[in-house]
Design a binder for these strands. Sequence first.
DNA 1: CGTACTAGTCTTTTT
DNA 2: GACTAGTACG
Length: 771
Amino acid sequence: MSILDGLNDRQREAAGHIDGPLLIIAGAGSGKTRVLTHRVAYLIKECNVDPYNIMAITFTNKAAGEMRERVDKIVGSGCEAVWVMTFHATCVRILRRHIHEIGYDNNFTIYDTDDTKAAMREVYKKLQFDPKQLREATVLREISNAKNELIGPDRFMSENAGDYRMAQIGKAYDLYQDILRNNNALDFDDLIRLTVSLFERCPEVLANYQDRFRYIMVDEYQDTNNAQFELIKLLAAKHRNLCVVGDDDQSIYKFRGANIKNILNFENNFSGAKVIKLEQNYRSTQNILNAANSVIAHNYGRKPKKLWTDRDGGDPVFFRVYGNGREEARDVAEQIIRLKRRGIADFGDCAILYRTNAQSREFEEQLVREGVPYFIIGSVNFYSRREIKDLLSYLKTIENAQDDLAVARIINVPKRGIGQTTIQKVMEFADGNNMSFYDACTMADQVPGLGKAAAKIEKFTSFIYNMREVLAQEGMTAVLKEIIDETGFIDEIKKADEDDAEDRIGNIEELISTVRQYEDNHPEATLSDFLEEAALVSDLDSADEETSRVLLMTIHSAKGLEFPHVFLCGMEDGIFPGFMSINSGNEEDIEEERRLAYVAITRAKDVLNISAAKSRMVRGETQYLPVSRFIKEIPEELMESENASDTGAGFGSHGSSFGSSYGNKVAENKLLKKNAAAFLGVKAGTASDTGRASQQRTAQVNTTAGTFTRGADLSFGAPDYGPGDRVRHVKFGDGTVKAVDKGPRDYQVTVEFDGVGQKIMYAAFAKLIKI
DNA sequence: CGTACTAGTCTTTTT
DNA sequence: GACTAGTACG
């Protein structure tokens, strides 16, 4: 009995092809992970390949983990030596060993997007650039693009000397690299780029890895950028046993440098390549596949393929149009509840997908209101939350204080009375004496013009010094707890703002237990090992631990996942496809969005619900957008459409209650919004109590102004509840109002929440609903 | 030096 | 609408 039994013919052919370049075009749901894992097992078990000689590269930790697990299962012990890692982790591993050979320090830290922005702000200060003329984000994007093309600062500057704007960017690039270098830091793009340059400049290092990795596999090959392509090409050059798996129709990462040509031209780049297509889909119903096939057929220049399944028919694709975004969200929540109640699906079988993260809020609100358990993936990565980053910066500083940005981040967190001017002075001193910021801090008494601040800095450095002792004696969990206790970190958060203090403290607790777990599982690991892992982890990696909750995520995050019931929302021109791609006038941008639509549709196993809204709040403005062009690309006979817009004039519906005529509704709404705010403002001036009269008055205002009295506007009006009333909060649930106090800006409300306890919050912020 | 408020920007998508 | 950098004031 062979390992390859149980695969279909195509899959078996792919997994069993061992020598020479191989391209596997794997349609959505065609079992590509299965093929990859079986191939690894086959190499080891039946071809006697040493696991040490095999490498599999993925894009996400999740994919890597999954593959590792499945290989373990088939092969059993002995496959630990196989490298199954992300591109970034692979490069880090190589660079940690060899980067000194191209003049860097092996002990580098890794900068995430936030750190990168901070570094760029530094650049702007030094070069006296004006962010209004040239945005930091633009420069960072250009730098990233350059790095993906393996263009360093020198080449960038010489190639762009003629163009003023680009020359400015070149200067920024150059200084940005200096700053990273001084902080002993690499950004994500550097990890790849410098590995390539290591290989190019040190042939013996390259030869070493070429000999080691005789069999190389790359997952999601359509997402590789040029730097990653070079990396693979170099590694595979000797043995040419390169197997790449991908789907050109699912290439959705152009914005971060992915080059779809890598997969389209694979046969040209690797002569003698074999190409195998996997077109049988094991996931979706035929109806869903037909919809996906019809949409993607509108793209040009793709590798022709057509998914098929033996799951005949199935439900039609449901398409509903709502009056506005809130109706859409509410109805999706209700539909999910109905599915659950009828025993058709569990919460965990449902996923809500959208184009942009900003769309998640409305769904979150409605799900909370309906009491549906949910989990949002990706809005804010755990490790980039402020309190977490602060604590990680402490750990970084304790580990080695070479990263100026990390030190500067925490030197006054919690408040130590060390202000911006003091930091500035120390920085100048550090620059002038060619030392790190932290080293300058340790000799604060010699920095001119510090005065009393010097003593405060001294206290800080001696604190760090003590923590290093604790780390050495008691380990990382202990230091982390010590930092939190000694600095009064949690009290500071409690003091700062009442609203999300709970969340933040919860995050901190989670960090502590993560560190403890890590320490337990890796007794030999150092603090820097942990920090490295933290730098390369994303939110998505924890997705499958969430079992019985509705998952909310962007379509990008959903790639590679599948759900019995998918709700694909916000299908409007301007949202999906987005304005950017419509306005660019470049058909390629629309094609990229269409591929994204294809990815979205093919996530659904059993039922696909698509929805759009006639009007929607975008960036604080109501927009009226037409139904997405992609909807029209789905044949009518596959769809069941419904106009689900709420025609009643109740709370939440736009326009109708004002008896407005058609015409320029957007402008009209803006005007009404202004008037409503002004009206409320007047009332606020006179409302000195929270008694019944003002309650009624506000209630009246609310009906008149409809949905316009939300958010900041409300801060002028008195709340429509008072002590003793029952209220509902989106996060904390139901509770009883204890007190309402008028504060300087807003009403402070004290509520005793059932089971959650007492909270003090601002009325405008809390958005409490009287029940 | 810290705060409290204002003005301006921003939105695609993420390893 | 949300967030952030910048500014005026205590």
